[in-house]
């Protein structure tokens, strides 16, 4: 039930019966850049385990593999990242890899579309690195995300 509640909260854009203005709305959001597949699917664990340092390695794999990156804001919503400062093309470029699991403050344009939240990050105002050190509680999530040692 907890995950369902969180999911409903992060999909909060859909609570509005009609769409907001079509032009992007400038916003500043603080939050963590997350792996949206593992966060929403629940396949790797609960939402507390698939963020932060515990999920960093998997987040890198997913981002490189074409999974959309999201910004989990302090408001509890997930903003699907369409583009980010320093990445001259859309999400999943090198910039997003370098920021995976980082807590950032983003300035950008916000769009509501099809009940989802999207953001074009025009400026990473601050990058605080990985601040949620949950690997101490969960270990690596999932364990198999760790690279194999060289033989």
């Amino acid at each position: 039930m907890k995950r369902l509640s969180i999911l409903l909260a992060v999909m909060g854009a859909a609570a509005s019966p009609t769409y907001a203005a079509e032009q992007g709305e400038r916003i500043e959001i603080k939050g963590e850049l997350i792996d949206t597949w593992c966060y929403f699917s629940g396949v790797m664990g609960g939402p507390d385990a698939v963020v932060g340092s515990a999920h960093h390695t998997c987040a890198l794999w997913c981002s490189a593999g074409g999974i959309p990156v999201g910004l989990l804001g302090e408001d509890g919503k997930v903003y699907m990242v369409l583009k980010i400062d320093g990445d001259d093309t859309s999400a999943s470029g090198d910039t997003l890899l370098s920021l995976a699991s980082h807590q950032i403050e983003a300035d950008g344009l916000y769009y509501e579309r099809d009940g989802l939240n999207y953001i074009v990050v025009e400026n990473v105002v601050s990058d605080n690195g990985i601040t949620y050190r949950n690997h101490e509680d969960y270990g690596p999530v999932p364990g198999f995300a760790l690279p194999e040692p060289k033989e």
Binding site: R3, L4, M11, A14, P17, T18, E22, F40, V43
Partner: peptide, 23 residues
């Protein structure tokens, strides 16, 4: 179970009227 429950919940959220792509 949670994933399925979440998917089912999201599937029922309102979409709003289609609009031209703003990008």
């Amino acid at each position: 179970a949670a994933a399925h429950q979440a998917e089912a919940a999201v599937a029922n959220l309102p979409l709003g009227a289609p609009t031209e792509l703003p990008f």
